[in-house]
């Protein structure tokens, strides 16, 4: 009990005392997961719209892939990214070939370090959140009746207008998709640990810091970070809910 109390006190001190180390970790978490969810939204909402609104060959198969992706353990996603980005992996090999061709004088070049970077964490988080955004968007778009889209088309809508209208009509669901995508990565630890490596001042994010501090026995610091993480989730979800409901004034 005393640990928890101390943790709460410490969390306050860390936050309001302006501990630069903690703010650095929070900032990195937000930057990586924020950018990852922006990218996942840019890719996932259009794909989710197509999957939810169009009939095409192989749609069921893609649906199964996306559903599997939604349940993909983050640590497995991390493992896959790790294998691709490691120095002996295909991407590093390709990059080395390019470097050797570009600057033959200095050849042979060392394979570039791709792992244990912020970029690697970003890649892993995009891969984790994309299926979530696609899947939830597809479900939301699928609930807009076909007749609604026909109605828009009959009033002169192009496919583009039709997509825009459908997504607007399904906006609560689409926002839920983005929230799900963000929630899935801000709280995720396995993949960022594997591909980021939890390097201080470089790739240490809140979840990996919590794991580290817990293992070191610094429960107060771990708990402080945990409380901040929950608080962040609360603030962000609160904001998104408010945004969702801003459109509800015209609804029954």
């Amino acid at each position: 009990m005393e640990d928890i109390w101390k943790g709460l006190m410490h969390a306050g001190a860390l936050l309001f005392g302006g501990d630069p180390g903690v703010w650095e970790i929070i900032g990195l978490s937000l930057r990586v997961s924020g950018l990852a969810v922006v990218l996942a939204t840019a890719v996932g909402v259009p794909l989710g719209y197509v999957l939810g609104s169009r009939k095409f060959r192989g749609r069921t198969f893609i649906q199964v892939i996306v559903n599997t992706g939604m349940g993909l353990p983050p640590v497995v996603a991390g493992l896959i990214v790790y294998m691709f980005l490691s120095r002996s992996g295909p991407i590093a090999a390709f990059a080395t070939d390019v470097l050797n061709w570009w600057d033959p004088a200095a050849a042979p070049h060392d394979a570039p370090r791709l792992l244990f970077t912020v970029g690697a964490m970003l890649v892993a988080q995009v891969i984790i959140s994309c299926p979530l955004v696609i899947g939830v968007t597809a479900a939301a778009v699928g609930s807009v009746p076909l007749e609604m889209r026909l109605q828009a088309r009959s009033l002169g809508a192009t496919s583009w207008h039709e997509a825009l209208l459908t997504i607007t009509e399904a906006r609560r669901g689409v926002m839920a998709a983005i929230v799900a995508g963000f929630g899935g990565i801000i709280s995720e630890v396995g993949a960022v640990m594997l591909v980021g490596g939890n390097i201080e001042h470089s790739t240490r994010v809140m979840t990996t810091a919590i794991v580290l501090e817990t293992q070191k026995g610094n429960f107060d610091v771990a708990l402080a970070l945990g409380i901040i993480l929950i608080g962040m989730a609360f603030v962000i979800n609160n904001g998104l809910t408010a945004l969702q409901q801003s459109g509800s004034r015209y609804e029954r």
Binding site: P145, E147, L150, A152, L155, G156, T158, G247, Y250
Partner: peptide
């Protein structure tokens, strides 16, 4: 053929009004 489609407009069984005023 959007050109031809722009000459027409439809009203369906369910009015399918869009969110908004």
């Amino acid at each position: 053929d959007r050109e031809a489609r722009l000459m027409m407009a439809a009203v369906f069984q369910n009015p399918y009004l869009f969110k908004g005023t």
